[in-house]
Design a protein around this nucleic acid. Structure first.
Lengths: 218, 218, 218, 218
DNA sequence: AATGAATGAGGGTTCATTCAT
DNA sequence: AATGAATGAACCCTCATTCAT
C-alpha cells in the first residue's frame, strides 16, 4: 500500500494532531454527557474540545458513533479498575468484597455515568466496536463478583447485569445541571446498594439474575 | 327540543369533556415521561391523549406546567401509598420494614419514575402548586421510615432524601424505549437497595443524610 | 315570512343584550387597535369587552369584518366632527381654517388612529358596509377643506386624500405599547402639518392630489 | 492541486460568501420591513435573501438583532445624507432649508421607513450596537436643522425628535402591500410637513420639543 | 344568543448533519 | 485534515376560527 511503502518518516505530525483532536473530543463529550446528559448539542462538545464542529464529524460519522466511542473509552477504563480489583481480591481473599466496593466507588470517578447512553434504546451494545471491551468489562466485573461470592461475602442471587444496570442508574447524570452535591449522594447510595449486595441475602429477589444480553429487546 | 324535553340525564359533558381531556393528557404524559423521559415532544403527548396539540396548551401554559402537574399527580398517589403503609405499620409494629418495602415496590407501579423531572435543574420543587403535596409526601415517607427506625429495622444514618433520590434514580425512565423487562430489573434493584437500608448497617456511609431541600442549589 | 308574521312583541330583550355586546366589542377593539395595532389577538378583544371569544364571531364573521365595523364606527364619528366643522365655517367664514384645525385635532380624540387598518392591503375600502359612511366622510372633509380653500386659507394643490392619509399616518398606533407621551407628539405633528397646508403654499408639491379611490391598486 | 497551484486570484469567497449572505439578508429585511412591516416572517426574509432560514439565525441571534442591524444600516446611510446636507448648507447659507428638504426626501429613498421599528415598544434604542450611529444621526440632523434655524428659515419651536418621529410616521410602511403609489404620496406629505416647519411659524405648537430620549418610557 | 373548549396551521428557534473552501 | 457556513427538519407555542353545549 502507498501509505505502507512510503517512507514512514515523512509526517507523523498530522496524524498526531488528528489523534489529539479525537481524544479531546471524546474527553469533552465524556464530561459533558455526565454533566448535561448525552443529548448535549454537538456544537457545544466541539467548542469545549476546542475544535470546529465539522471536525467532530470527520472523526465520528454521527452522534451515535461519538456516543459509542465515549462508552468504549469509559468501558476500557472501568474494566481496568475491575481488573485491578481482581488482583487485590486475589492477593487477599478476605478483601474480596472490599475490592468490589472500592471498584464501584472508583468507577464513579472514571465517569461511569457517561456509560448510561448504553442503556438507551437507540444504542446497540453489540456493535462490533464494543464487543471486545464489553466482553472484557463483563468478564472482569464478573471475576470480581465471583471472588466476593467465593469468599461468601456476596449474595448469590445476582449477576453482573444487576450490578451494571444499578450502577448506571444510580450514577446517572440529572437532566439539567441540578443538585450541587449530587456526587456525595451518589456515593451514599452506592454504599447502601453495596450493603444490599452483601451476603447473607436479607430478602428474596424478584425476577432473574441477568447479564447485559438479557436486557435487550429481542 | 331534545335537550329541553329529555330528562336531565342526557349528558353533563361540556365541562366534563374538558376535565376528561385534562386527565387524559396528564395520564398520557405520565406514561410517556416514564417511557421516553420528560422531554417527549408535546405533540406526541397530545396524539397519545387523543387531542390536538393546542389543547395541551389550553390546559397547561407551557411544558413546565404540564411537568409540574404530572409530578403533582404522582406525588399525590405515592403519598397515598405511603400513608397506607403507615397504617399497616401502626397495626403491626413488626411489619414496619415490610410496609416500607411494600410501599417502595408499589410506588414503582404508580409510575414514581414520572417524578424524576423533579430532580432536573429547571424544575422548581418549591412551586406553590406543589408545596402541599410535597410536604405530605415527605411527611408520609418520613413517617413510614420513622416506624421502621423505631422498630429497629431501618438503619439510622439515612433520611428521606436518600430514599427518594435513590428511588427516583433506580426507577428512572431510560431515554428511548429500551429494555423490555426493565420493570423486572427495577424491582430487583429496589429490593437490593432496601436490603441495604436494613438495620444493622453493614457499612459507614459517606456524606450526610439529607432532605430534598438540601439537594437544591439555594 | 315567518319572522315577520310572528307577533313582533315577543322578546325585544335578547336583542338589546346582543346589541350591547356588539357595541362593547367594537369599543374594545377600537381602543385596542389604537393601543396595540390592529393585529391584537381577538381573544384579548373579547376579554376586554367582557364577552366570550365565540361571541365575537357571532357578531362578526371574521377578523376582517370586525375591523370593518370599527372603521365604520370611527368613520361615522369623524364625519360628525367634520360636519360640525362645516357648520362653524359657515357661521364665520374667517374661521374656516381654524375649523379645519379643530376638526383634525378632535379626530385624534375620536380614535381616528383606529381607521388605519383602512390603509392595509387586505382591507377593501369599497365594501358595501362602508360605502355610505365613507362617502359621507369624504364629502364632509372635502366640504370643510373647500370652505377653507374658498376663504383663501388653504393651499389649492391638495385634496381630501392627502389629508386623510397623512392624518392616518401621523396618528397611527405604534407596534407595542411604546412612547409614553406619543399623544402629545401627535398633536404637535398635526399642527405642523396643518401649518404646511395653509395658503400661501410655500413649495411645489410632487405628484398629484388624490382622493382615496386613487390610492387603491387597480 | 488546483487551490494550491492556482494563483491566489481564484476566490476569496468562503468568508466573502458569508459576508455577502449577511448583506443580502439585511437588504432583504430592509425592503420587506418597508413593504410589509417589521413583523414579516423571517422565513420570507430568508427566501427573499436566497438563503435557508437557519442562516438568518446564524447571522442574527433572533429577530430583535436583525431588526437592530437593519436599523443600524439605515441609520448609517441616513446620517451620511444628513452630513452631506450640512456640507451643502455650509457652502451656501441661503440653501440651508433647501438642504433640509433634500435630505428628507433622500432619506425616504434610503428606506428610512425601515427605521420605524425603532419606535416600537420592544426596541431598545440605547442598545450598545446603536449608540454611536444614533448619536451621529441625531448630531447630523440637528446640525442640519441648526443651519436652517440660523439662516432664519426654520421655525424655532421644534427639535430633532419632532422631525424624526414625524418622518418615521409619514414614511411608515403600511401593513400589507397596499397602495401602489404610496411613494408619491409620501413625498407630497413630507413636502407639506416641511412647509409647516418653515419660519415664520404659522401657529403655536402644543407640547414640548423633544429629542428621541424623551420619547422612551424610562 | 352565549360560551368554553378544541383545533390546525403557522412562525420562531434549535440542532444534527452536509458543503465548500 | 480542519473549518466556518449552510441547511432543513423538528419542536414549542400562538392564534384565528369552529364546535358542542
Amino acid at each position: 500500500m502507498d501509505t505502507a511503502t512510503a517512507p514512514q518518516r515523512r509526517a507523523p505530525r498530522p496524524r498526531a494532531d488528528a489523534q489529539r483532536n479525537r481524544e479531546r473530543i471524546v474527553a469533552a463529550a465524556r464530561e459533558m454527557f455526565v454533566e448535561y446528559g448525552s443529548d448535549v448539542p454537538l456544537d457545544e462538545v466541539a467548542r469545549r474540545a476546542g475544535v470546529g464542529n465539522a471536525t467532530v464529524y470527520r472523526h465520528f460519522a454521527d452522534r451515535a458513533e461519538l456516543v459509542r466511542q465515549v462508552v468504549l473509552h469509559v468501558t476500557d477504563r472501568v474494566a481496568d479498575l475491575a481488573e485491578r480489583g481482581i488482583a487485590t481480591a486475589d492477593a487477599d481473599e478476605g478483601a474480596a468484597f472490599t475490592a468490589l466496593r472500592t471498584f464501584v466507588h472508583a468507577a464513579v470517578d472514571e465517569r461511569i455515568g457517561a456509560m448510561c447512553p448504553m442503556l438507551a434504546a437507540d444504542f446497540d451494545p453489540f456493535h462490533p466496536d464494543l464487543l471486545d471491551a464489553r466482553e472484557r468489562l463483563e468478564q472482569s466485573i464478573e471475576g470480581l463478583m465471583e471472588r466476593a461470592r467465593a469468599a461468601g461475602q456476596l449474595r448469590t442471587d445476582i449477576a453482573v447485569g444487576d450490578l451494571m444496570v444499578a450502577l448506571s442508574q444510580l450514577t446517572r447524570p440529572l437532566p439539567g445541571t441540578a443538585c450541587v452535591n449530587m456526587d456525595s449522594f451518589i456515593h451514599r447510595h452506592l454504599q447502601l446498594f453495596l450493603d444490599g449486595l452483601m451476603a447473607p441475602a436479607r430478602s428474596e429477589l424478584p425476577g432473574e439474575a441477568a447479564t447485559l444480553e438479557d436486557l435487550r429487546q429481542d
